[in-house]
Amino acid sequence: MEIKFNEEALATVNKIIARYPQGKHKSALLPILHIAQAEFGGWLSPETMDYVASILNIKPIEVYEVASFYSMFNLKPVGKCLLEVCRTSSCWTRGAEDVVKHIEKRLNIKEGETTKDGMFTLKTVECLGSCGTAPMLQCGASYHENLTMEKVDALIEEYRAANKQRSYTDLDYKNTL
């Protein structure tokens, strides 16, 4: 994969950089990393991070230290659909552990692993602000809330059939709040 933004992505990047005062373009780093992660396979390879550094004219280490700090940036490859199940208090009280176990069994992977076909990665995450609609999982930009095992099964089928990468920056999102 060539690590270079297409014209559309580049236009968005330039629009973001223009939000900040002259010389403060480093502020654009997090938003651009999100775009880079979506554009280049769902994770940030060292090549991707170096490319982002070159765009912002900052040192690669400034990108690495930021990418490694925030939990939404994947520093290793993940499946096309990263299933992020919230497990903190309110979700836990309403059965988040069941959801994790169910997905593990259904996809035959453990938490943190990716299915052999590269379709799904299962991750447990901390509070996503969906406590009133617990249990929940996030995949890309979508929040899937008030989960039941049936809903989880249907979601997995839907995603498998669509066979496409899900990113936080996706414009088509679902939410049920």
Partner: peptide, 22 residues
């Protein structure tokens, strides 16, 4: 401005650091 998934950025000075791209 979107963050990157870090509870600590709710602390106002951490938020400002993050907004500066750090």
């Amino acid at each position: 401005q979107v963050g990157g998934g870090a509870y600590i950025c709710g602390e106002e000075t951490a938020l400002l650091e993050s907004l500066e791209g750090k």
